[in-house]
Simulated assay, not measured.
Amino acid sequence: MTRLRREPLAEQAADALLARIRAGEWALGQKLPGETTLAPQLGVGRSTIREAIRQLAGRGVLATRQGSGVFVTALDVTEDWAQVLLRADIDAVVEARIAVEVEASALAAVRRTPAELRAIHRAAAARDAHRDDVEGHVDADMALHRAIVAAAHNPLLTELFDGFAPRSRQAMIELLRLRGTHGSDADQLVHQRIIDAIAAHDAESAAALSRSHLLTLKTSA
Rank of each mutant, 00 (worst) to 15 (best):
A109M: 09
A208Y: 04
Q192N: 08
A123Y: 01
S184H: 05
R97N: 10
P8K: 01
A57M: 05
L32G: 05
R127W: 11
D89M: 00
V138G: 00
G183T: 00
V72Q: 00
T219A: 12
Q192M: 07
R146I: 05
W81F: 12
A119L: 12
G163A: 13
A96H: 06
D185P: 06
A123V: 06
T78N: 07
P33E: 07
G60D: 08
L215W: 13
E174S: 06
S68H: 14
E35H: 13
V70I: 12
I195V: 14
E95R: 15
Q83R: 15
H153P: 05
R97W: 03
R22W: 07
N154C: 09
A99V: 15
R3Y: 10
A13F: 05
L107V: 04
R111P: 01
E135M: 09
Q192K: 08
D15V: 11
L75P: 00
A23W: 03
A14E: 00
S220Y: 12
A221R: 13
L156T: 13
A119C: 10
T2C: 09
R6K: 13
W26G: 10
E79V: 11
T48I: 08
L209Y: 07
E174Q: 13
S68V: 13
S68N: 10
A14P: 00
W26I: 07
A57S: 15
D132K: 05
E35V: 15
S168M: 13
A186G: 14
L107K: 13
A96R: 11
R169N: 07
S105I: 02
K31G: 07
R177P: 02
L85E: 07
L18W: 02
E25I: 02
H130V: 03
Q55D: 10
G60N: 03
A186N: 13
L144G: 01
V72A: 08
R3K: 13
E103R: 15
L144H: 04
A208L: 10
A171S: 12
G67T: 01
Q170F: 09
A206S: 07
V94F: 07
T37F: 06
S105V: 02
A206H: 02
R65G: 04
A125H: 12
D202K: 13
Q83M: 13
H191A: 01
A199P: 03
A63V: 14
D139V: 08
P40Q: 08
P155C: 10
R146E: 13
T2V: 15
R5Q: 14
G43V: 03
L157W: 00
A82K: 14
R97G: 15
T113M: 09
H121R: 15
D76F: 05
R22M: 09
G183S: 10
A109H: 07
L32D: 03
R97C: 11
A151G: 11
L75R: 10
L117P: 02
